[in-house]
């Protein structure tokens, strides 16, 4: 029971960062989502020692373990979009496959090249 309360309180603290991120984006007028700004803020807060890992890690680990659950409600709406796949299915598949292939090749080669360049003395 105590653990449940702890997880809930820690999720509350994480929500505070979402809110802070949203306020920051609204005040600066930057077209960024609150949760992404909040994520950057939390990382900086952890790095600076303002927030200790122990304050949030159980809440964060709980949410991340079940992250996929929160994706399901967004995808249920697909029941209203069947026509798009029927009509554009083939072209969509080509665009997605082509772009995914290029992404793998570019990010794989760029990072491999930099790894070899920057660590000439590692085996």
């Amino acid at each position: 029971m105590l653990r449940v309360l702890k997880v809930i309180a820690q999720i509350g603290l994480l929500s505070l960062f979402v809110w802070l991120g949203g306020r920051f984006a609204a005040l600066t007028g930057l077209p960024l989502p609150g949760n992404v700004v909040g994520l950057i803020f939390l990382y900086l807060a952890l790095r600076s020692g303002l927030v200790k890992l122990a304050f949030i890690q159980e809440g964060a680990d709980f949410l991340l373990r079940h992250l996929v659950f929160f994706f399901i409600p967004a995808a249920v709406d697909l029941m209203n979009w069947g026509g798009v796949f029927y009509r554009y299915g083939f072209r969509l598949a080509l665009a997605i496959a082509g772009s995914t292939f290029l992404t793998f090749v570019v990010s794989g080669h760029v990072s491999q090249w930099l790894r070899r360049r920057h660590q000439p003395c590692e085996s």
């Binding site: 994480l14 609150g34 909040g38 994520l39 949030i56 949410l63 991340l64 409600p73």
Partner: peptide, 23 residues
């Protein structure tokens, strides 16, 4: 209504991705 309630936890979950980054 159920959808928006469940998805309201997506925000704190995303912020929580800072934890593996920090670790």
């Amino acid at each position: 209504p159920a959808r928006s309630l469940m998805m309201s936890l997506l925000g704190p979950a995303t912020v929580g991705l800072a934890v593996p980054l920090y670790r």
